[in-house]
């Protein structure tokens, strides 16, 4: 903290609370409160029940959670693999074909720049005809999520690679390690903290993805955000809130686990 006098520090904290609480914390608190409620009294939810959670823990809701987790897992794993690979490729191209490298960088920016509805639509158009008929399969949802989050994986791994001091690779190469050996034993382990951060980010983004999913999901593959949306859309605000809390909780648990790996990796 750059502020040293005690009153000034209090003032900073007060200002922080005044901005942070209403904007960031209160909506979450209201959602959590609503998920236990049976009705509204004035501005606040009232009544206390666990019924919404009981509903959320079985049947369609549970399926939706599993669907979301599987989708996010598959999407973030493939995004991490593709993003890491492309970042490494761009780095290798930098010395030989700078232009091509920059083109690949731009290509991976596209899904960030283009609205996700458009990404959804384009996948729908592209894969609605044989031989590439994916429309109506879970694969197209996973694919859409992967396309959307690979950009983030690519960017975070690129940033991490540019921070990685080349002396380690060079030391390894001078000791006789082939490029593949250097990648496996030196580069990837040193990148592990950034890789796990990228994986966490991709996972969280995929867990919350709604707009492209809405255009693509088949009836047997309903991710949780779609269920939340459907619940609130038909007016079941409280069960929607419970589902939303489940979504947040599941994402947070996974993120915490991933950041555990990260602290372990960077402590070494």
């Amino acid at each position: 903290m750059l502020v040293h006098s005690r009153p000034a520090r209090w003032a900073v904290w007060a200002a922080f609370a005044a901005v942070f609480l209403p904007v960031f914390a209160l909506p979450f608190l209201v959602i959590v409160a609503a998920s236990f409620a049976t009705g509204w009294s004035g501005a606040l939810p009232s009544g206390a029940t666990l019924a919404h959670y009981r509903d959320a823990a079985r049947g369609d809701a549970l399926d939706a959670l599993v669907t979301s987790l599987l989708t996010a897992l598959a999407a973030s794993a493939s995004a991490l693999a593709v993003g890491t690979w492309s970042a490494l490729a761009v780095q290798a191209l930098r010395t030989r074909a700078r232009r091509l490298g920059r083109a690949v960088d731009t290509l991976f920016m596209l899904p960030v720049a283009v609205p996700s509805v458009v990404v959804g639509l384009s996948l729908l158009v592209a894969f609605s005809r044989p031989p590439l008929l994916l429309n109506g399969t879970p694969t197209i949802v996973v694919l859409a999520h992967a396309v959307l989050v690979t950009a983030f994986a690519h960017q975070s791994v690129t940033a991490a690679l540019s921070r990685l001091d080349p002396v380690y690779e060079q030391a390894a190469a001078s000791l006789g390690a082939s490029p593949a050996h250097v990648l496996r034993r030196v580069k990837l382990p040193l990148l592990l903290p950034s890789l796990s951060a990228a994986a966490g980010l991709c996972f969280a983004l995929s867990m919350g993805e709604l707009s492209a999913t809405m255009m693509l999901y088949p009836p047997d593959w309903l991710p949780l955000p779609v269920t939340v949306f459907a619940a609130t859309d038909r007016g079941s605000l409280f069960s929607g809130a419970a589902l939303a809390v489940v979504l947040m909780g599941a994402t947070l648990i996974v993120l915490t686990a991933v950041s555990r790996i990260r602290t372990r990796a960077s402590y070494r």
Binding site: D165, A171, S174, G176, L192, R268
Partner: peptide, 17 residues
């Protein structure tokens, strides 16, 4: 990696992991 030289640099470059 095919040259068979040993190299020691100023920043040590030991693998931290």
């Amino acid at each position: 990696h095919r040259r068979g030289v040993g190299m020691v640099v100023q920043q040590y470059a030991l693998f931290p992991h």
